Simulated assay, not measured.
Amino acid sequence: MTKKTIALIVLTMFLLTLGLAGCGGQQAAKSAEQSAAKTLKVGSDTAFAPFEVQDEKTKEYVGFDMDLIKALGKQMGIPVEVQSMNFDGLIPALEAGNIDMVISAMTITPERAQKVNFSKPYYKSGLSMVVKSDNNTLKSFKDLEGKRIAVQIGTTGADEAKKIKDAKIREFNTAPEAFLELKAGGVDAVVNDLPVNEYYIAQAGGKDAKIVGEPLTSEDYGIATAKKNTELGNKINKALDELKQNGEYEKIYIKWFGKKPPQ
């Protein structure tokens, strides 16, 4: 065998090695892309305790919705990644394809259902009003006529408050901001979802505020997906049914609300 032949063999082997390495790199990159694509991006307004809130110590998002969406992802065999954003930006982000789904204590309404698909209801709520502890004049929603009301922008609470005669509505990006405005005396009442109001009262120890009157509405929360993504919506409904059947949903409910879910 001549030196020229040996050189050609060595060169051929070198080129083959490069080719195989390139293929391996492409396959690894492709695998990484597929893995990333399988992670579901979940939009949520993470300032709505006890449904979603950021833990001050761990910086992780916790709450009823957060536990539920993780359990749903596990049941579907797909990891989830929560992205925090303002409530009024959730549906636009879903429509734009920036996220795959929304779980954010979002009430199922006909108006929203025109833009997105909703899962089966996973929580029953309603609107209530919060006033300062020393306020003994506001006892029902009827008493809010002409009063100053704090609400969270884009919510059903904001929609209903705007229907109250001569009321002066102040909209805030988050529920905590609305409660702070009440504490500061900038508004007479806060209109928001009952479980959120109850959580705020519990955290405040009942010193600063109180819930008055009967709930104004009865509302169902749903998980929103894009209109074109019916497959994901079907998977969510199937997984939700399975979590209710295997008892996992009840465990999460009891953890955050201290009682069993209504039948």
Results as ranks from 00 to 15, higher is better:
residue 107 T to Q: 10
residue 246 N to F: 04
residue 101 M to N: 07
residue 167 A to G: 09
residue 127 L to Y: 07
residue 64 F to G: 12
residue 175 A to R: 00
residue 161 A to P: 08
residue 133 S to A: 15
residue 49 A to N: 06
residue 73 G to M: 08
residue 71 A to N: 11
residue 156 T to C: 00
residue 251 K to M: 06
residue 39 T to S: 06
residue 75 Q to N: 13
residue 206 G to D: 01
residue 89 G to Y: 08
residue 155 T to K: 13
residue 218 S to Y: 07
residue 84 S to W: 04
residue 227 K to A: 12
residue 139 K to G: 09
residue 234 N to K: 13
residue 7 A to I: 00
residue 60 E to T: 09
residue 152 Q to S: 03
residue 248 E to H: 05
residue 65 D to H: 00
residue 255 K to M: 03
residue 158 A to V: 02
residue 27 Q to I: 14
residue 170 R to P: 00
residue 122 Y to W: 14
residue 75 Q to P: 14
residue 79 P to Q: 12
residue 184 A to G: 01
residue 248 E to M: 08
residue 187 V to L: 05
residue 61 Y to P: 04
residue 109 T to L: 10
residue 64 F to A: 12
residue 154 G to T: 05
residue 82 V to L: 15
residue 188 D to T: 00
residue 238 K to E: 15
residue 175 A to F: 10
residue 54 Q to H: 10
residue 104 S to A: 09
residue 108 I to R: 07
residue 256 W to H: 15
residue 165 K to G: 00
residue 161 A to K: 05
residue 202 A to C: 01
residue 149 I to Q: 09
residue 105 A to E: 06
residue 156 T to I: 09
residue 34 Q to K: 14
residue 191 V to W: 00
residue 116 V to G: 09
residue 129 M to T: 14
residue 231 E to M: 02
residue 130 V to T: 10
residue 25 G to V: 08
residue 170 R to Y: 14
residue 52 E to Y: 04
residue 164 I to G: 07
residue 94 L to R: 11
residue 127 L to C: 02
residue 42 V to D: 10
residue 60 E to I: 13
residue 171 E to F: 02
residue 53 V to T: 13
residue 170 R to N: 08
residue 241 D to K: 10
residue 256 W to N: 09
residue 51 F to P: 04
residue 62 V to A: 09
residue 104 S to H: 13
residue 170 R to Q: 14
residue 240 L to K: 08
residue 164 I to H: 08
residue 108 I to V: 15
residue 2 T to V: 11
residue 91 I to A: 14
residue 85 M to P: 08
residue 105 A to K: 07
residue 10 V to K: 00
residue 132 K to Y: 01
residue 252 I to V: 12
residue 262 P to K: 12
residue 21 A to T: 11
residue 43 G to W: 01
residue 217 T to W: 03
residue 134 D to V: 11
residue 18 L to V: 10
residue 146 G to Y: 01
residue 56 E to L: 10
residue 155 T to N: 13
residue 71 A to C: 13
residue 147 K to P: 05
residue 252 I to R: 07
residue 134 D to E: 07
residue 54 Q to W: 02
residue 213 G to D: 02
residue 44 S to Y: 10
residue 106 M to Y: 04
residue 141 F to S: 08
residue 208 D to H: 04
residue 105 A to G: 11
residue 109 T to N: 11
residue 17 T to Q: 09
residue 162 K to V: 06
residue 36 A to S: 15
residue 16 L to I: 06
residue 219 E to K: 00
residue 222 G to A: 01
residue 162 K to L: 00
